[in-house]
Simulated scan of single mutants.
Amino acid sequence: MVDKVKIKKTRRNNFEFDGTIALAVGIMFVMLLAINFSEARAEAKYNFRYPSWESPGSWHNENFYFWWTNRVEELSKGDVKFDLFPGQVLIKGANHYESTRDGIVSFSPGATSYEKDTLPLATIEELPYLIDVVGKDHNTYFKMHDEMLSAGLQAYYHKKGVHYIAGSLLEPYGIWTTKKWGPIRKLEDIKGCKVRTPGGVLNQTLVALDAIPVAISVVDMYTSLQSGIIDGVSLAEASQISHRSYEVVRYASRVNLGGPGIHIWANLKTWNELPQNIQDIMMQAGKDMRNHYAKAQSKYWNETTPAVLKKAGVELIEITPQERARLQAATESVRQNWVAKYGDAENGLVKKLLKVIYKYYPEK
């Protein structure tokens, strides 16, 4: 029970509420917030929390991770709403798969480099110099990946508790180096280079090239380059630019070491409980998203990166076909070791997937 409101005058002739009315006003404010929040949620038939490891306003959020959620909301005409949590404030990027599988969130983006220990067969697309996407027609990649899903990859995801909705490949990782290290134009230039990486197959690739992969958080990448803890970084170009690596490097070499697949998936139980029309909307949004991303990615690779680096005084280096062939030969052990390790898993699923890949990207 709330006492009567008591008001007293201050020496400045202003009215001042005592503690009782302050409490009453606070309770009313909270109640209004709760009512408004409940009404906002009530407008949607389905409301889901959705995380991203990318910072707010990042290029990959705008063109991939959050582009999909926005498209779902648009196609569903508001029946589906997502509460977005960028910057790892809800879940660490490396834990997206487990959190989705276990129902902590119903939907999330993922990257195969984060899932090398939990979904190892998903990393097949990361293998260096296996799939060449940038600068080419992405439709070839999409056809290949759809066929891989039909060949057993989707069933593999289902066994792991998630449903794959859509995805693409990041632009292949290059190596951006400091002035002190110098440019990377050929295989020999990589030897001994301390390179910050996001992990996954890329680490094995760098070891095969006699480089030294270094585990450093992306938020510490800039200062680590400044201080000389690392000589270079390997990351998707849009992420490099988002984190302003171009301010502390002098050379950006497109050695194209391969890149992780990025994707959107759902908790399998949640997915199976959704009505068909909502599933169809989410799958259509996935197709729309990957088509949008393919165009945006190509434009970024061909226009944005060169312009940003030129303005910053960073030399953009394209590796010659001869050096690409040498790099491919030097990393053959990575592909062979991966197949040797996982080739018999899931009743030979890897062999089926490789057959599909070589159909669209012939083995060289």
Rank of each mutant, 00 (worst) to 15 (best):
I21M: 03
G286Y: 03
E323Y: 06
V5M: 09
N267D: 04
A94V: 15
K269S: 05
E303Q: 01
M221I: 01
K191H: 10
I241K: 02
Y50P: 04
E115K: 09
S253W: 10
V134Y: 11
S242I: 04
G161H: 03
L130I: 07
G259T: 03
W265I: 01
I175M: 08
Y97S: 02
M221C: 09
I104S: 09
I229D: 13
A42Y: 15
K341P: 00
A208T: 11
H263M: 09
I184D: 02
E115L: 15
S99M: 09
F82Y: 15
L316W: 01
L354H: 12
P213C: 03
G152S: 00
T100W: 08
T270Y: 02
A40W: 00
A211I: 06
Q284R: 07
K179A: 13
Q204S: 15
G286L: 04
S227D: 11
P51M: 00
G103C: 01
G174H: 04
L75C: 06
L202P: 07
Y251F: 14
V350S: 08
K299Q: 08
I104F: 14
V162H: 08
V219I: 14
L23Q: 11
E318V: 09
S113E: 12
W301E: 01
K81E: 12
N14W: 14
Q226M: 03
R244Y: 10
M289E: 05
P321W: 03
G343Q: 05
A22P: 00
T118F: 11
P275W: 06
G78C: 07
K310F: 00
R244W: 07
S55H: 14
L121M: 14
I262P: 10
K194C: 04
S168D: 15
G199T: 06
D189W: 00
E188Y: 04
V248D: 04
I281Y: 13
V133G: 00
R290V: 11
T112L: 05
T177D: 13
F37Q: 10
S298T: 03
K269L: 02
K77Y: 11
N337K: 09
F64P: 01
V214H: 00
D280K: 11
Q154L: 10
I216G: 02
L206M: 07
K351C: 09
P260N: 10
I216R: 02
Q240G: 13
G167S: 05
E237R: 10
Q276A: 14
K116Y: 09
V339Y: 13
G182L: 12
D132W: 06
E39D: 10
W301G: 01
V350F: 02
V350D: 07
A122M: 11
P183F: 15
E62N: 15
